[in-house]
Design a protein around this nucleic acid. Structure first.
Lengths: 252, 252
DNA sequence: CACAAACGTGAGCACCGCTCTTGTTTAAGA
DNA sequence: TCTTAAACAAGAGCGGTGCTCACGTTTGTG
């Protein structure tokens, strides 16, 4: 059986039932793949995605430069893996922050937790932020593998929008056919997550999301230098204003 | 007198008074510099900034690969020139759009002209947009040369914010000392452009700006795929809502 | 007219992503 | 248990990159 590097991650534990028969080769493969990803992550953090060199990674791991292509078919495929990891790391932070709000009806608190956790993660991981929200490098169309992780990172925010839309008793809910602005496939995501929402609410929520992403990118990419002195206060002020604008208050 | 590539543009027409004595060498230098920039611009539009190759440019112009370093000291310096050009191109578009609103008191119309002209330019020049608002490539700190062009592109928006702040009779104007959020140097820019403005107005204006930049970047970088079907309508809806939020109405 | 600065050229260095061939190790089927 | 094919590691190599340097030429100037 031949195995291309692309399907390496999907072919784990082929023999169901018996957890024992993994095989030395399969174990080594998983371990080396993890080591490559870890080294790539280090290089990404230190030098940025543009300077990420496959040869440097192989030098780190003491292997031949050609050996890495047994595990990742190309530099783009490695970057895609790093993108997915970045999305998941961000999603973890946002989920923990949102989940930390015990009073689920306090939409204002949940909004503050979500928005500030996004920025905190970005400040802690600027290279990873640039990887997912900066200039796309792998190609104009993001690989299919990334969209699952991408939607996971925005899921808490969507959930909050749905909850708020339900509280306000919104009509004109988004369905697959009645939407003119939003994509038809979005209604499936909304339904899968927790129910429908009004189209205008979703559109305004996307505006709030864009403002958060924009503020963080402007800050991280240096566009607020000589403009904003206290970026913390600036973000807090605007995030709070967005919460007011979207009617996020303490509910029952 | 020695001349490094960095100061080539600043050393034009050294002999004041006589416009004639430019010299063949100086003329050739300016022409070749312009040709290099034009070729670089073509490569940028077609292949993106990441794949911009100095050697490909020299092949285009039929010169030796090492000759380009007589005109640009490094790839970063060429990219910086392209960034400045992109900022100025964007500024031209925004200035024309804003200047096209004859009724200067119609702040709502000016806002629509400014915001939509930014997006229109971005859709027409996605690679240039990525160059200035995407991941910074030249270095974390933008070169000093770019900030002049950068502020020029945001000047109409700042002007509009000042006009609106004046209409609403804002108090607590931004000065060099009383600001806690904004940078001290910003008050100089505000004063130079057309007068003071309230700090909260400027902060909220920055939020609106971030939302516009964020919406365009999300759209161009592929993050609204499978989310927003009609990006035109989406942007128009939110831009109009921002105008309402900032009290942009038809004035006297 | 001499001289120095600016210029164009080609070779060369170190690096990159990626491919191919060669020889070895592992695992599965006869 | 032995055989055979797949997976693997390694090294050479290809075309490309940014950039440097030494060389000979052109140009402007004192």
């Amino acid at each position: 059986m031949s195995m291309t590097p692309s399907e390496s991650t999907a072919a784990t534990s082929a023999t169901a039932g018996t957890t024992k028969a993994v095989g030395i080769r399969e174990r080594n493969r998983q371990e080396l793949t993890a080591e490559i990803l870890a080294s790539a992550q280090r290089h990404l953090v230190e030098h940025g995605s543009a300077d990420l060199s496959l040869r440097a990674i192989t030098r780190d791991l003491g292997m031949a430069s050609s050996a890495i292509y047994r595990y990742f078919a190309s530099r783009d495929e490695l970057l895609t893996a790093l993108i997915i990891k970045a999305y998941n790391d961000l999603a973890d932070r946002v989920e923990v922050a949102d989940g930390g709000v015990s009073k689920r009806g306090d939409h204002r608190a949940r909004w503050q937790a979500i928005s500030t956790s996004i920025r905190d993660w970005a400040l802690d991981n600027p290279q990873q932020w640039a990887l997912i929200y900066g200039t796309p490098i792998v190609g104009y169309a993001a690989p299919e593998d990334t969209i699952a992780a991408a939607t996971r990172s925005t899921r808490p925010l969507i959930q909050l929008l749905i909850d708020e839309s339900g509280r306000s008793g919104a009509t004109e809910l988004v369905t697959e056919s009645n939407t003119s602005i939003l994509a038809p496939g979005l209604s499936n995501i909304l339904a899968e997550i927790g129910g429908p929402a009004a189209e205008t609410d979703v559109v305004r929520g996307l505006g709030a999301w864009a403002e958060i992403i924009g503020l963080i990118s402007l800050e991280l990419f240096g566009h607020l230098k000589n403009v904003v002195l206290d970026c913390d206060a600036h973000f807090t002020y605007l995030s709070n204003e967005i919460g007011t604008r979207l009617n996020f208050e303490v509910g029952p």
